[in-house]
């Protein structure tokens, strides 16, 4: 039973560096549930910073990060971790897998700390995901024997193994060649759409931009006003 994603509402958001420099200022932003959003902008603009803040990995200096009723900016650390664990999937730029584990173990990593009752379902789902991503037969092999594109697909399986309503991705295709990037975008989007998930991805990938409902431009830590539907 897929869970309906909560709507995202940012208000008066300000993220500063530990030194106090303003990294990101967002007076207002809303993202509808079940939509796909791509964030783009020049290097150093604050795209990753925004994504980390949305995942609760960076605590803003002020403002609200509301996923439905939950304001991550006001939540204590353990509750944020629980939110990440239960509601978010995350795909990083360079897959960030555990090289010493197998593909299947990486994909079902969350089972290691999930409640006992959820483990079997998690393992089954990660296996099904690997199969759908074309890696099912090689699940038992160690990750260091996989290509870049395959690793990134394992990372997608890991992000979706808990069936999270929200998927965040930071330049998921940046390290891939065109063919692999296209395949990943297709897989990612079809899986997300099938599950009715909210997708927010930092990317310059034309395929991903083309598949998105909405593209946001960030420059110098601020949203450009022309950010709108493509």
């Amino acid at each position: 039973m897929p869970r309906t994603p909560p709507p995202l509402r940012l208000r008066d958001l300000a993220v500063t560096s530990p030194g106090g420099r303003a990294l990101l200022t967002l007076p207002k932003l809303a993202i509808a549930p079940g939509t796909a959003t791509v964030i783009r902008g020049p290097s150093g603009a604050g795209k990753s910073t925004l994504l980390m803040a949305l995942a609760g990995l960076i605590r803003p200096a002020r403002g609200e990060i509301r996923w439905g009723e939950t304001d991550l900016a006001a939540l204590p650390e353990p509750a944020i971790a629980r939110f990440r664990r239960e509601t978010l999937g995350f795909v990083f730029q360079d897959h960030m897998l555990f090289e010493e584990l197998s593909a299947a173990e990486n994909a079902s990593l969350a089972a290691l700390y999930a409640p006992k009752a959820a483990r079997a379902g998690l393992a089954a789902r990660s296996e099904a995901l690997l199969t759908r991503l074309g890696l099912g037969a090689r699940g038992a092999r160690r990750v260091d024997s996989f290509s870049g594109g395959e690793r990134q697909r394992i990372a997608v399986a890991r992000a979706l193994a808990t069936d999270p309503p929200i998927l965040l991705a930071d330049e998921p295709t940046a390290s891939l060649d065109r063919a692999n990037a296209d395949r990943l975008v297709a897989d990612l989007m079809s899986l997300a759409r099938d599950g009715g998930k909210t997708v927010i991805a930092v990317s310059h990938d034309p395929a991903l931009i083309a598949a998105a409902d909405r593209v946001l431009h960030i420059e110098d830590g601020a949203l450009r006003p022309e950010s709108a539907r493509v």
């Binding site: 971790a81 629980r82 990440r84 990593l109 969350a110 290691l112």
Partner: peptide
């Protein structure tokens, strides 16, 4: 840190 970013409890 990766585990924590993925939501592993402290």
């Amino acid at each position: 840190a990766l585990l924590r970013a993925l939501g592993a409890p402290r």
